[in-house]
């Protein structure tokens, strides 16, 4: 265990990257998810079809495969990405697909009467979406969004395969150096656990604050 403490700064740097990967890909995932959800609900036929295809592919394949395709596979087509860039893209695109499903469900669960009331005061479909439907949908989407968020924190460990120096990768480097497995794996296990329960705690408070609003 002493080994873990001696190398704590090295591991904490990895944990920092894990958090950064989570936050950045969640941010872009939210934007992608919202755009795709609206495209699927309001777009014309080809756009709806493309959006559906995207969601289906991402949800139907392992994240690990998506990561290696973006990092190693695209090289064949002359697209060479840095490992960190590839990680951001893979994780954002992946989260976007799942979040789009969350948003779509949430938008659909806003009662039809809300739209009708908005239309009857002369709002355009876009105004009604932005001012009336989305604020209500977001509230409905927050608990499942929180789950995706925490899931994302753990799934970032997969980008260790493309040598991004996040928490798991840092542990593997230390293991290669000291030929000791258990202390490092246990150590990062605890660190993941602290981060995800911390995140869950923050999200829960946020959720409760929003729930109180009306």
């Amino acid at each position: 265990m002493q080994l873990v403490f001696d190398n704590l700064p090295f591991l904490l740097k990895g944990a920092g990257f894990t958090l950064l990967l989570t936050l950045v890909s969640m941010f872009f995932g939210l934007i992608i998810g919202l755009v795709v959800a609206i495209a699927r609900l309001k777009g014309n036929l080809p756009i709806r079809w493309i959006a559906r295809f995207y969601v289906s592919i991402i949800r139907g394949t392992p994240l690990l495969v998506q990561i290696v395709i973006i990092y190693y596979g695209l090289v064949d087509y002359g697209i060479t990405l840095g490992s960190l860039t590839a990680a951001y893209i893979a994780l954002s695109v992946n989260a976007g697909a799942y979040l789009s499903e969350t948003f779509r469900g949430a938008i659909l669960s806003v009662p039809k009467g809300q739209l009708e009331a908005a239309y009857s005061t002369g709002m355009t479909p876009w105004q009604a979406m932005r001012r009336i439907v989305l604020p209500q949908a977001m509230r409905i989407a927050i608990p499942p969004m929180g789950n995706t968020f925490i899931g994302m924190l753990k799934e970032t460990s997969l980008v260790s395969v493309i040598t991004v120096s996040e928490l798991l990768r840092q542990a593997q480097l230390l293991i290669a150096q000291y030929y000791q497995y258990m202390p490092f794996y246990l150590g990062i296990g605890v660190m993941y656990w602290i981060m995800s329960t911390g995140l869950a705690f923050i999200l829960e408070r946020f959720e409760r604050r929003l729930a109180k609003a009306y």
Partner: peptide, 20 residues
């Protein structure tokens, strides 16, 4: 239709107030 909506108000059985 959109122009008409600006000149006519509609009140619904279920009120349909914006809850937020």
């Amino acid at each position: 239709t959109r122009n008409i909506r600006k000149q006519s108000g509609m009140v619904f059985q279920q009120f349909n107030l914006y809850p937020h």
